[in-house]
Amino acid sequence: MALLEVKDLRKNFDSLQVLKGVSFEMDQGETVSIIGPSGGGKTTLLRCLNFLEIPSAGSIRVKGETLFDSADRRGLSEREIRQNRLHFGLVFQNFNLFPQYTALGNVSLAPRLQAKERPDFKARRKEIFDQIEEHSIELLRRVGLGDKLNYYPHQLSGGQQQRVAIARALALTPDVLFFDEPTSALDPELTGEVLNVIRQLAREKMTMVVVTHEMSFAEAVSDQVLFIDGGVIAEQGPPARVLRAPLEERTRQFLRGYEK
């Protein structure tokens, strides 16, 4: 059974159709790269999967559990949307770290708030918070920032900020981690450190979806590549084929723009 199943996902903004029926599946431990021109619907797809936008139609299933199905007319409650979001993590293009918290504070904030909903929270408060702190420090070490725990975002470089953001997204142990052009806001010399962290996560079999313009990175790291254009998946398949020998003319045209 696929870990994530997306069926016929559609999204309209008033009369504008941004997603016109996107379907794909991915297995546990897979890395999927999404490429395609701006305005093609890549970001909207990610936002729908994270419930920052509610899809107009279609369904989303994770581990066989239906998170969203437009056939179900009941609609989602505020609480259900929050529960759904916990299946996914999202790393933004602009990091969106919380400026008033340290690196460690950014990573541990959401887990600490989540912990308050545990039935044993009152009795084991200190123990739980200690565990969260330990786990958060461990995550920051994994992204190579073990020595920057108490730095505030403005004291970190863009690449370091983005790595904190990755650690923050991992802190709630999502089933799937999404990246929305994670290196697009970075100076070229800083993209490497972020891509390396994502590569390392891929090796550790984290299930990931990466929207990216870094074609060589997409080829090296992903199991599948989706080419999204005009609100649909125009082409999909193994990276070597989609990126080296695309079947569709519009994929070829898009990739030509990246040839040096």
Binding site: L52, R85, G89, N96, F98, A110, L113, R168, A169
Partner: peptide, 24 residues
Amino acid sequence: GQREAGQVLGMTNTQIFFRVTLLQ
């Protein structure tokens, strides 16, 4: 993006207001 970062981390609107937005 501050609000959205809180949302994807499963925070409630109240938590986002008091823990993220207010001090800023």
